[in-house]
C-alpha cells in the first residue's frame, strides 16, 4: 500500500492551521465573526491529513491566476 500526501498534489494548495493568537487579528482585519468565514468540513480529506479539529481556522495559500498568490481562510466544521 502506497502512502500519498494529498498536499503534494498539484491542485491542492498549501493548507496550514493558524495559531490561536492569530485568529483574533485575522477576524479584526476583516471585521467579521468566526462563523462568517467559509467552511471546511472535518471529514474533508485534507482536513483529516492536517488533523484539524472543529473550531480551527485553516489558512490556504492559493495559487491564483489573477493575483499570483491569494490567501483564503476556512473554519473547520463538523
Amino acid at each position: 500500500m502506497r502512502k500519498i500526501s494529498l498536499l503534494d498534489h498539484n491542485s491542492v494548495p498549501k493548507h496550514e492551521i493558524i495559531q490561536v493568537d492569530d485568529i483574533k487579528s485575522l477576524l479584526e482585519k476583516y471585521q467579521i465573526e468566526k462563523g462568517q468565514l467559509p467552511k471546511l468540513k472535518e471529514s474533508d480529506p485534507v482536513a483529516k491529513e492536517l488533523e484539524a479539529a472543529v473550531g480551527d481556522i485553516v489558512k490556504i495559500t492559493r495559487i491564483s491566476q489573477t493575483a499570483d498568490e491569494s490567501l483564503y481562510y476556512r473554519l473547520v466544521i463538523e
Binding site: 494529498l6 498534489h9 491542485s11 491542492v12 494548495p13 493548507h15 471546511l40 468540513k41 474533508d44 480529506p45 485534507v46 482536513a47 490556504i60 492559493r62 476556512r74
Partner: peptide, 12 residues
Amino acid sequence: TYEVFGIEAARN
C-alpha cells in the same frame, strides 16, 4: 476530486 483531494482541489 472533492472526495479524494478535498474542497480546495474541487474548487480548482
